[in-house]
Design a protein around this nucleic acid. Structure first.
Lengths: 241, 241
DNA sequence: ACAAAAGTGTTCATTCTACACCCATGG
DNA sequence: CCATGGGTGTAGAATGAACACTTTTGT
């Protein structure tokens, strides 16, 4: 049992803090994806007590020899099969009564996933599903609050940095990008003004291909120019959308 | 020793997670104050190993029966004597090697203090001092990073909500407010434009008194109108400065 | 030929920026 | 009477919001 190793460590010579109390530390991931014009969230049926069987964020305990950040990446890899995805800390949840299972602090992270990238079978094998934000069921523990907080962070962040691109496939059309932002902000945007604004950022490269899935006429595909983006960032550019 | 109570709890019936590992959880506070036209930080000489004697943020371990947020408030009360001050979570620091003392996660909080309010004797009795941001010495552990992160959060927040007022005495002049914002953003602002902007927010109440400490002519004092502020917030007003 | 989405420009209102001088007072 | 910081207004630039019609093409 891991307990014994923790106890040993707790008494070992290099523990300067042995007269203090320890807590369980977990991480929960708010995983955003974008598909069929909707912003979605990956949730699954919790398999441990308490609240077993309730819809829940994906998460895990943080191990003694593991960075909190790495724990979140481990969870994401386990469930989606994906490495190297956009992952950022949202907030720590530290109320004493937040988890009836035992005193447990959770450091929430939010992730942005290209919904065509992930390993569908792996996800399903974990009992996980993509839910549209609007249709989200009640979640376990304080996970509803975590989602609300992460969403508001995503909105703020999306307004100042072009992170929306993390949620789209490599090639995407302007109307798709607009739908994504409409999903994030939950309101409609004017197509002319939106196009003007994103093109004025000068970080989109127009391709010669068209995507005809959305219309008969087809819409030109673009890709995100990361190099240009880096350059502009370093020269202090403001990406507000 | 607290260790024994933790061990008992760890094995008790209502611990669903007993086969996982626990960590020390601490909180560190980035305490901002404003005085003599400068943005300052409250730091003290660390009194526990490792890094004893090094300048450090004020902090404490989080107890088993204590909200993380409350732990930060407790620390602030202990050192400044102040209750009910602006306190907000900054970020959790979870690297395995961040604290050579033992694996310890820290949830950093930043606080804004009216520098004429705090209990000077109490602060000094804890070996704490106010340092101007520019003159800050190297701090213990990852506390330099914590300060940098908190400062950037303070900047972002100050731009969208009038939290600057938390750092000033109840009555303040517009030039004082401007100095404060110049301290936060670390750049000079145009006095005419600044005055225009803050007055346009309609949350300042001009008083009949003047403050003559800054000039012979004296500058009118203002106070912050919290009720008006609440009203405007609820009606979806944007306080960008 | 028509339905359905893609694409394009202009005008007006608002906000931001830059900038220079007079005022009131204590010493 | 003068040095010091407090206080005021305006014009030009940039940005944001509102708004309607033409294009393409598969059916």
């Amino acid at each position: 049992m891991a307990l014994s190793s923790a106890s040993i460590a707790n008494n070992s010579n290099n523990d300067f803090y042995a007269d203090h109390e320890k807590l369980y530390v977990a991480t929960d991931c708010i995983v955003f994806g974008f598909d069929e014009g909707d912003l979605k969230l990956l949730i699954f049926k919790r398999r441990v007590e308490p609240d077993s069987g309730i819809w829940s964020l994906i998460g895990s305990f943080v191990q003694l020899d593991e960075d909190v950040n790495d724990a979140a990446r481990r969870v994401l890899k386990e469930i989606t099969g994906l490495d190297e995805i956009f992952l950022e800390q949202s907030k720590a949840y530290g109320k004493t009564d937040r988890d009836p299972g035992y005193r447990c602090l959770s450091v929430a992270h939010y992730a942005l996933i290209r919904i065509d990238d992930y390993d569908k079978e792996l996800v399903e094998s974990h009992g996980a599903y993509w839910y549209t934000l609007k249709d989200l069921p009640k979640l376990a523990l304080d996970h509803d609050q975590m989602v609300a907080d992460a969403l508001s962070k995503l909105r703020r962040k999306a307004r100042h940095q072009p992170i929306g691109f993390e949620l789209l496939p490599e090639k995407f059309t302007i109307p798709q990008l607009q739908q994504l932002y409409e999903g994030i902000y939950q309101r409609e945007l004017d197509p002319r003004n939106f196009r003007k604004k994103v093109l004025s950022l000068k970080v989109l490269v127009k391709l010669d291909e068209k995507d005809k899935s959305g219309s008969k006429r087809g819409a030109f595909l673009y890709r995100f120019d990361f190099e240009k983006y880096q350059e502009l960032l370093e020269s202090g550019y403001n990406f507000e959308i």
